[in-house]
Design a protein around this nucleic acid. Structure first.
Lengths: 109, 109
DNA sequence: TATTGTTATCGTAATATTGCGATATATAAT
DNA sequence: ATTATATATCGCAATATTACGATAACAATA
């Protein structure tokens, strides 16, 4: 046990869950907001801005990268991270469709 | 360690992370979609539809309820679960604002 | 080449999550 | 009162997550 039974769900459900999970941490939300606000890559400014150790931030960046939400290229001395447009669009689509399925309040509860 | 450092993040960041975390599991996405599609409460039809044990589903429902995403009332023999309109609106708002912060592709990556 | 600055990875401890069988609880029907 | 049906909770094992110090890797510069 302790292992999610992905095989009984649809690809879309698993994919959305993976994306949400990657964002479901305040540090990773803060990192994404930092990238979004500056509208460019971030190159290590994060350490010091957030109150987390360098190793921890690197780990969070890796998770965001593994999920495909951000992408990074080596840029000389520091790494350049930015939003992956493809995944961001997918996220807006999937999540938008999911949230929009709500038809409004029902009378039973 | 193993404990999220919520105190170094804003309330909004923590709140959004909590909501996302509650949804970040394929079973819970499936449960929510099931509620959304039928547009009414669900009363135990889930067991059997999903391939999970009754105890597991009950636990997932509890997590969604704890996060405030669904609400339930005792309805005779079975429990009635439906979307919590307030939280759903909050989710649409917060998540919409978050996703909309993206200004489009940059040239650096 | 040696040094400096930056990011990644390893190893580890503490805690959380996932899933389920067993059992408890509670209502409706007999 | 007993039985049937439905949901919740407990306890457990397996696995995942979170955080960080230590250290490695790597490019730029002196």
């Amino acid at each position: 046990m302790g292992l999610t039974k992905t095989e009984i769900f649809t690809n879309k459900q698993n994919q959305l869950a993976t994306l949400l999970k990657a964002m479901a941490h305040p540090a990773r939300i803060a990192i994404l907001q930092r990238i979004l606000i500056s509208n460019t890559c971030i190159c290590g400014d994060l350490v010091g801005e957030l109150g987390l150790a360098q190793a921890t931030i690197s780990q969070h960046l890796k998770e965001l990268k593994n999920a495909g939400i951000i992408q990074g290229t080596i840029e000389g001395v520091s790494i350049c991270y930015c939003i992956n447009p493809k995944t961001w669009k997918l996220l807006e689509q999937q999540l938008g469709a999911f949230l929009a399925e709500y038809k409004g309040e029902t009378t039973c509860c």
